[in-house]
Every structure is written in structure tokens, then in C-alpha cells.
Design a protein around this nucleic acid. Structure first.
Lengths: 226, 226
DNA sequence: TAAAATCTTTGATCGAGATCAAAATTGTTA
DNA sequence: TAACAATTTTGATCTCGATCAAAGATTTTA
């Protein structure tokens, strides 16, 4: 995707004037990534934030013994690490490409200058951060109240939307396991269980939704309820 | 606490001009709460946000079968639900006083008007949301990687700061259990274990830190590491 | 200050899901 | 397309922490 196109598509910059878009385009720097490149590590000074123009970036934490917990996967047109240039100024997680990718880097200083002059961008940022905060709150809720089948069902239902009969996982199964707060063995068994119960059919990354209603019920269910 | 004092103390309003403080003071409405009053429920339209002038407010989620998971406890001088007036405009959780309390309510509409005119407040908001986002990310990380003893140790170490030898729990033990993503029985047993190991001494709500180093180690430790 | 209500602790049991190990499948590269 | 690497699946075991039940302890209210 072109730089300008990516900037225009990014919700963070929705509704800003064309001349602001010009300035944004000037201050950013493009970087191409092959799969598996680490953009930044947890604890590094946050020198700026990013917008994804191509590919996908995973945002994750590492346990001391090296286990990975994906917090979020950033897709084309989305931004990440805007929050990091506020707060204590350190990146709070790792960012790494999970495919060949390209990003636009916006240096902290130039961006903060822009912020002070105009008022649409900060409001967009607040809205974006709010959505994220809500999503994280939901993740905390789910980790506490829901078991793996329910968390998986929620993920599948959300991915399918209202219409789709068949969905394709946008990420690998081991990544999905990490995103759901479990491990690939358990995810594998859970997918099989849902298949055996005729809720879904799994063909590699393609998953047919066979019984949306029961899948919804499962997503709402809590640990002990059945 | 006086309205004006609470507004001045609130990080959200740090660095704003005196005349803006005047306007804020005008648009807000004070509300006194006895213990256990519900300020808003999950799913209600977000008509404004709050600043706590006295007492404490718990922000929590409920599972379908009524189990409570505390996401955050708001203390005097802090704000909450600013994020909710953005995003989809619904409160994403419940808010309830855990003691007699008083809050200032800022209606959404008036506040958004103010936002558009000035630039310090949105920046403060972004900073606040960023900190929150980070805290939530850490909670997700801890729920995934850390067992209950480690999560408790982290809580105690953070509460104690660098100096204090003795701390007092600012909330009840069952609330703490919920905040840590466990139940009171498990918290009770875990406190006892830490006592038996001479890491802490528990006298009701007062807790002596006996061995800060080992407590820190425990907070860093992951599930299987010993 | 008695008694009612709430909170905390202790005991016993049980299950979801992590771990370890290994086989099977899929994807990649020479 | 053979050979290598990476991912996914299956099997067996084991543990943390939830649940259920009940007894103490503390706080509130009459």
C-alpha cells in the first residue's frame, strides 16, 4: 500500500485536513520488514509509533522463560504504539512482523508538535485508545470467567460476523492459541471437540460455521455452566 | 474533599488554566453515595464521566452467573469512565462505591465541547488512557504467565513502594482476591503460605514485609519455575 | 451487648488445562 | 521431489486453583 493511502486509511488520522496529511506524510519514514523482524522490544524507549501499510505485526509479551503471549495483531491500515509515547515513554511489549510487512514510523517529537496545534488527531487518539482499553478489559474478563472453548467460540463468532458461513484464520493456529491465552495443544483439542459436536468443520485454516447459534451460546457460557 | 480541590488534584486536569477550571467546576454535578450504590451498569449509555472526591469506587465486570471481577479501584482524586464517552458510547463495566463516597459527574456533551477548544486536556487524557492500557496489558500478562502467589507478591511489592516495612490493604481481602483474578479462599491460603515462608506477616489488613527480596523474586517468577 | 450479617479461614474434592513426549502433517528449500 | 524444517495433532500424566461445605472471626445493627 502507498504511504499516502495508508495514512488516509488509518482511523487515527480520520477527518484531518489535507495539509495535515501532507505534514504527516513528510514526517514519517517507511520501513520494509521480512517475516520475523523485531520492530521494538519491551522496555526500550518509545521513540515513535507506527502505521502498518502491508502485512501483519504481532504485539506480545514474553514470560521470563520465553513463553509468548500475544496481546494484539495489527493489520493493514491500523496504528500501534501511539499509547507508548505517552505514559512512561517505554514500549510496554514486543512488536514483530509475522509476515513480510511494511510500516510507517512517526517520530515522537514531530508528532507531539503536530498534536499541540490541532484538535482532531487527539480526539481520534482518545477514541482509539478507548476502544483498545475496552478490548483489553474484555480479554481480562474472558481470561477470568471463560474457559478455552468459550474464548475460542467468541473469537470465531466475531471473526465470522453476521453473514459468513466459512472463515479463514488470519493467523497461524499457534499464534491464535497465544492470542487466546492457551497453548497449541489445547487449541488443537478444542477445535476437535467443536468439530465432533458439529459446531464447526475445520479444513486447515478454513473453518465452516455449522451451527452459529450453539457457537454463540458457547461463547457466552462460563466455566462451570455445564 | 471540596469540588475545586478534587478537580485541581485530578491528573486529567493537570496544567489547565484557571478559567478552564472554572468552567469545569460549573459543568460538573456532585453526588454523594452511601456504600454499595451502583453509579452505572455495563451496557448503559455513557452520558458522562466521573472524578472521585471521597471514598473509593470499584470498576468491575460480572459473569452471567453473577461472579464479580474487579478491573480497577478508583481512589480520591482520580477519574474514571472518560474512555467510555468515546468508543461505542456504552459503559463497558459496572461502577459501585465500596465505602461512603462522593463523586463529581461531568456530562459528556459539555465536556466534549470543552475538549474541542483546548489542547491540554486531550493530551492529559491520552496520557491517562495510555497508563491504563499499560496496566491492563500487564494484568493480561500476569493472568497468563503468573500464578496466584506471584500475582499477590507483585501487588504487595507495588503497594509497599521502596520504603515501607508495613502496608495496609486499601481494600478488603475478598475485593483483593477479585482484583487478582482469584477467589477469597485461594487468597487466604496464599497469604498463609507467604506467612509460613516468612516473607510477610499478616495482622488483619496490616501486612509486614519481612523479606522484600524474596517477595520480588516471587513476583517475577512464572508458573512452573519451582 | 446480644444477635445478625458479613468476611475470612480451613478442609476435602475435583477438573480444566499445562506439560512432556512423540507421531503426523504441512510447508520450504535445495 | 527428496529432505529438511516447522507446525499441528494425539496421548498420558500431573498440578494449580476452583468449588463445596462448614467453622471462626470481625463488623454492623438493633
Amino acid at each position: 500500500m502507498e504511504n499516502r493511502a495508508a495514512i488516509k486509511k488509518c482511523p487515527l488520522f480520520a477527518g484531518v485536513t489535507d495539509q495535515d496529511l501532507d505534514r504527516l506524510e513528510e514526517v514519517c519514514r517507511r520501513r520494509e520488514l521480512s517475516k520475523g523482524e523485531v520492530l521494538f522490544s519491551q522496555g526500550e524507549p518509545a521513540v515513535g509509533f507506527y502505521v502498518v501499510t502491508d502485512g501483519k505485526i504481532k504485539i506480545y509479551k514474553l514470560s521470563p522463560d520465553g513463553k509468548e503471549r500475544i496481546l494484539h495483531i495489527v493489520h493493514e491500515g491500523e496504528s500501534f504504539a501511539e499509547a507508548a509515547i505517552f505514559a512512561d515513554g517505554l514500549y510496554p511489549a514486543f512488536a514483530e512482523s509475522v509476515s513480510p510487512a511494511a510500516v510507517l514510523f512517526f517520530p515522537k517529537k514531530e508528532f507531539l508538535n503536530l498534536l499541540k496545534e490541532h484538535s482532531q488527531i487527539p480526539i481520534n487518539m482518545i477514541a482509539g485508545l478507548s476502544r483498545f482499553l475496552r478490548q483489553f478489559a474484555t480479554q481480562i474478563e474472558d481470561l477470568t470467567f471463560k474457559d478455552v472453548p468459550a474464548r475460542l467460540a467468541r473469537y470465531l463468532v466475531d471473526l465470522a460476523g453476521d453473514e459468513a458461513e466459512t472463515i479463514q484464520l488470519p493467523i497461524s493456529k499457534s499464534q491464535l492459541a497465544s492470542r487466546l491465552g492457551t497453548v497449541s495443544e489445547t487449541l488443537s483439542r478444542t477445535l476437535r471437540k467443536l468439530s465432533d459436536d458439529d459446531l464447526i468443520r475445520v479444513r486447515g485454516k478454513d473453518i465452516d460455521i455449522l451451527d452459529r447459534d450453539r457457537l454463540e451460546d458457547l461463547a457466552e457460557s462460563t466455566r462451570e455452566s455445564f
